[in-house]
Amino acid sequence: MESERLRSHTVYVQNLNEKVNQTDLKSALYAVFSPVGKVVEILSAKTYKLRGQAWVVFESQDAATRAVNSLNGFPFYDKPLRLSHALHASDTLLHRNGDTVDRPTDARLIRKTESQAKEKAAQRKAEGVESNMAPMTRGAQSNGSRTLHVQGLPATTTDTMLRILFEQFSGFEQASLTQSEVGKACVEFQSVEQASVALNGLQGFRLNPTHTLTLSYVNVND
């Protein structure tokens, strides 16, 4: 059945930090999962039965599989993600393929709370609630280097997690953690311009409440 095949497009996410508001949570989830593949939608709700959980729907089955295999245990707001393939297909994909299925109570509850979450998000935005990006200075001047120095990574970061974070940017070549210093890494791009795009794209990105990325150009004379 088509709906059974589409289930594998959806990743079930558990062990989320329940203190994070829905707007910031979805933004952060998108930032973590979008480098793996095209994200169609992210579902989450902060009701008692559904808190700490989310569903990330990918355009392709391969992307969902990559996410489960590479991001399981990824440190996210001070808690490791627990990922698995969802038991139910996404409504978005079902409708796109002309299929229907009875949704379980939990899934219907997510749909019901989405409109409420959007209203609250608009209210929080109007009140000036901080976004997932910390205050930062854009447009750092390049020194001619195509290699970036990264600081502020959680101690549990792996080379795979680091690569996933940066390979969303064109020209990415390689990334490696600095073995002698916890929370630091070097990321290399094909050109200075491509390195600059990545630096400005992730400068000040808040991975969780205690870890914010700081990027700089590696000294070309080193």
Rank of each mutant, 00 (worst) to 15 (best):
S131Y: 03
K112A: 00
D62F: 09
T156D: 11
V56Y: 11
G98H: 05
K118C: 01
W55G: 01
A117Y: 06
R146H: 07
G139T: 02
T137E: 13
K120E: 12
T65P: 01
Q168L: 14
T113P: 01
A134F: 07
G73A: 10
S70W: 10
A117N: 12
L94P: 00
R103K: 15
D91M: 12
T65D: 05
R82W: 04
A63V: 12
S142W: 10
H85D: 00
T47Y: 00
K46S: 13
L109M: 14
G52P: 06
S142D: 06
D91L: 13
T160A: 13
G144S: 07
R163W: 09
S84Y: 03
L50F: 03
D62L: 15
V57T: 14
P75H: 06
R66A: 08
W55M: 06
N69C: 01
N132D: 10
T156S: 15
A117K: 06
R103E: 14
L81H: 08
S60D: 04
K46W: 09
A64Y: 02
H95R: 11
Y48Q: 03
A126K: 15
M133L: 15
L93Y: 01
G52Y: 02
T47N: 00
G73M: 08
T157H: 05
G52I: 04
S115D: 09
R51V: 09
V129H: 15
W55N: 03
R66E: 09
G128S: 04
S60T: 15
T92M: 04
F169G: 07
K125D: 14
I164T: 04
Q61S: 06
L87V: 01
T113C: 03
Q53M: 08
S60C: 07
P135S: 07
D102M: 11
D106E: 12
A86I: 02
L165T: 11
R111E: 08
M136V: 11
N132C: 15
L153D: 07
K112I: 00
L93A: 06
R111L: 09
S142V: 10
L153P: 10
G128K: 05
R51L: 01
P154A: 12
R103I: 08
S90R: 02
H88D: 04
T47E: 00
K120G: 03
L93C: 10
S84V: 05
R146E: 00
H85Y: 11
G152N: 11
L94C: 02
T147S: 14
A126D: 10
A122M: 05
S115K: 13
F58E: 06
A89W: 06
L162N: 04
A121D: 05
M161V: 01
F58Q: 04
N143F: 02
V57R: 04
S115N: 08
E130C: 05
D106H: 13
L81E: 06
T156W: 09
D62P: 13
K112M: 01
S145E: 01
L71E: 08
E59T: 03
T157Q: 02
T137K: 12
R96P: 00
E173R: 14
N97S: 11
S70H: 14
P154L: 06
R163Y: 03
S90T: 00
N72K: 13
D102E: 15
T158L: 12
A117R: 05
V57G: 04
V101A: 14
G52H: 01
N69M: 01
T100G: 09
L148G: 11
